[in-house]
């Protein structure tokens, strides 16, 4: 049996709540665990008895119906940062959470998809090559097809640009609203900028804003790309109007700073 990372959730890490997670078994019983440790296909846990003494228990993963994990530290803050387009801030938080949630990624109720929903777009917007490689090495499916496809595109962008191009063409269909489509449009837009195909660049970047409104982490770079395209096409008027939008929605982002520099 492969050794799994043994990780302990302790009260000190989780802010001192009475219990950290609820382990709901298939037979309906529930264990409120203050600490939980994974050892292969078993979970060892500690729980507080009514007389405040600590008891220990162990359950088989196969018998678990679901685990209700507590809110991850910093995750709410990461969500707020994501809504504001602060990719680097999101990454600072999610990079610390990835190993925590990765351990239980196969358990029902696990938080791996939730963290990946922020981490993947944050990597697209602000991650470096090493961070992408690190994620790729430990990637497991989130059971969310859109999210899994998006991760594949992210990895291809780094490892196989030619295949990435094919993926972009497949995903970036008119009106598509998936994260994978958004990542593809960013790639197509960047290529178009480099080839000075301004019309294609503008359309691709704006497609992220228009058709994938929920992925706000990607919007600052999309809007900046569109501004570059507009300036390349000689349309300063439209570029300035878009700059107003960028300032209004994502004022504290490096993308806004860059755009403001292009349009003094």
């Amino acid at each position: 049996m492969r050794c799994r990372l043994s990780l302990i959730f302790s009260l000190s890490l989780l802010g001192g709540s009475l219990f950290a997670q609820e382990i709901v078994m298939k037979d309906g019983t529930m264990h409120k665990a203050t600490e939980m440790r994974r050892e292969g296909q078993f979970i060892f846990y500690k729980t507080l008895a009514p007389n405040t003494s600590v008891t220990e228990g162990v359950v088989a993963v196969a018998q678990i119906q679901s685990i209700v994990f507590p809110e991850l530290e910093g995750f709410a803050e990461a969500r707020v940062a994501a809504a504001r387009g602060h990719a680097l801030k999101v990454l600072r938080i999610t990079e610390g959470l990835v190993p925590l949630v990765r351990v239980h990624a196969d358990l029902p109720g696990n938080q791996w998809p939730d963290v990946m929903r922020l981490h993947v777009p944050a990597l697209v917007a602000g991650g470096n090559s090493e961070a992408v490689s690190a994620l790729q090495k430990q990637w497991v499916s989130t059971a969310d097809t859109d999210l899994d496809n998006a991760a594949k595109v992210l990895f291809l962008n780094k490892s196989d640009p030619e295949k990435a191009g094919l993926a972009w063409a497949a995903l970036a269909k008119p009106g598509a609203s998936s994260l994978g489509a958004a990542i593809s449009w960013l790639g197509i837009g960047q290529q178009a900028l480099e080839s000075k195909k301004w019309g294609l660049a503008i359309r691709s970047f704006l497609s992220v804003e228009l058709f994938v409104p929920a992925q706000r982490l990607l919007h600052p770079s999309a809007l900046l790309g569109a501004i570059r395209g507009m300036l390349g096409a000689g349309d300063e008027v439209q570029a300035r109007r878009l700059l107003v939008e960028l300032k209004s929605e994502y004022p504290d982002t490096p993308e806004y700073e860059s755009a403001a520099g292009l349009l003094p």
Partner: peptide, 13 residues
């Protein structure tokens, strides 16, 4: 609001 490129993308869709 005068953001014509966005309107173009949507109408092209």
């Amino acid at each position: 609001i005068g953001r014509l490129w966005e309107a173009v993308v949507l109408f092209e869709y």
